[in-house]
Simulated scan of single mutants.
Amino acid sequence: MSKLTIEVVTPERVVYSGEATMVIARGVEGDVGIMPNHMPLVTPLKIAPVRIKTVGDKETVIAVSGGFMEVRGTQVAILAESAELPEDIDVERAKQSKGRAEQRLNEKHPDLDIRRAERALQRAISRLEATKNI
């Protein structure tokens, strides 16, 4: 069985490096599933979890905040603004962040940076979704 080599990198560190049978990410055009020997592709990523399926139906989920994914044959590189493994996420803090962002968006204060509040909400939701499997 063919495998992918995947690396998830942020400006600070390599978050994940390993082999996979499939990678599922949310690009700007929608979800995309990558299997070995996929056609070459470069796509911007949305703030959403990336799912990495490994041998034996195991799955690693990584909360990714934007960036790009590049696919070449059996190589997948995700260059993310930020990325967190579930065990690195403070669930309580993510819940509080989600609540704060929702509250800001509901208040509709005239000086509110709506885009920033929406991105904060998306990041908190992505973190919470990534921790569901631990």
Score class of each variant (00 low, 15 high):
residue 110 P to Q: 14
residue 56 G to A: 07
residue 1 M to D: 10
residue 2 S to K: 15
residue 115 R to H: 07
residue 58 K to I: 00
residue 31 D to A: 11
residue 117 A to H: 12
residue 45 L to R: 07
residue 22 M to C: 14
residue 56 G to I: 02
residue 110 P to L: 10
residue 69 M to S: 05
residue 122 Q to G: 06
residue 57 D to C: 03
residue 130 A to C: 04
residue 36 P to E: 01
residue 22 M to W: 08
residue 29 E to W: 06
residue 56 G to P: 10
residue 80 A to D: 04
residue 119 R to Y: 07
residue 8 V to H: 12
residue 52 I to G: 04
residue 134 I to C: 07
residue 86 P to M: 07
residue 65 S to E: 13
residue 4 L to F: 08
residue 78 I to A: 00
residue 99 G to T: 09
residue 32 V to Y: 09
residue 114 I to E: 02
residue 39 M to Q: 15
residue 25 A to L: 15
residue 65 S to Q: 11
residue 26 R to P: 02
residue 87 E to Q: 14
residue 129 E to T: 02
residue 4 L to C: 10
residue 100 R to H: 01
residue 82 S to Q: 01
residue 4 L to M: 13
residue 125 I to F: 05
residue 105 L to A: 06
residue 33 G to W: 12
residue 33 G to Y: 04
residue 24 I to E: 15
residue 61 V to K: 09
residue 77 A to S: 01
residue 48 A to Y: 03
residue 63 A to T: 03
residue 119 R to S: 12
residue 30 G to S: 13
residue 71 V to P: 07
residue 70 E to W: 04
residue 12 E to C: 12
residue 3 K to D: 06
residue 15 V to C: 09
residue 127 R to S: 04
residue 63 A to P: 02
residue 131 T to Q: 08
residue 59 E to D: 05
residue 118 E to W: 05
residue 3 K to P: 03
residue 110 P to T: 15
residue 5 T to A: 03
residue 63 A to V: 02
residue 20 A to T: 10
residue 30 G to A: 07
residue 27 G to R: 13
residue 33 G to Q: 14
residue 5 T to H: 13
residue 6 I to L: 06
residue 39 M to R: 15
residue 122 Q to W: 11
residue 123 R to F: 06
residue 15 V to E: 14
residue 49 P to S: 00
residue 94 A to V: 03
residue 6 I to D: 12
residue 126 S to Q: 11
residue 102 E to Q: 11
residue 109 H to E: 15
residue 24 I to D: 12
residue 76 V to A: 01
residue 115 R to N: 05
residue 51 R to M: 03
residue 6 I to P: 04
residue 98 K to D: 02
residue 80 A to W: 01
residue 49 P to W: 00
residue 110 P to N: 14
residue 30 G to Y: 13
residue 12 E to S: 13
residue 120 A to H: 05
residue 107 E to K: 11
residue 121 L to G: 06
residue 41 L to P: 12
residue 104 R to Q: 12
residue 77 A to P: 01
residue 73 G to P: 06
residue 36 P to K: 02
residue 32 V to R: 08
residue 108 K to Q: 15
residue 7 E to M: 13
residue 39 M to I: 15
residue 12 E to K: 14
residue 74 T to F: 00
residue 121 L to D: 09
residue 14 V to L: 08
residue 64 V to M: 05
residue 18 G to M: 11
residue 120 A to G: 14
residue 8 V to D: 12
residue 38 H to R: 14
residue 88 D to V: 05
residue 60 T to G: 04
residue 110 P to I: 13
residue 8 V to L: 14
residue 42 V to Q: 15
residue 67 G to F: 10
residue 79 L to C: 01
residue 56 G to F: 01
residue 61 V to F: 03
residue 72 R to G: 05
residue 42 V to H: 14
residue 120 A to I: 08
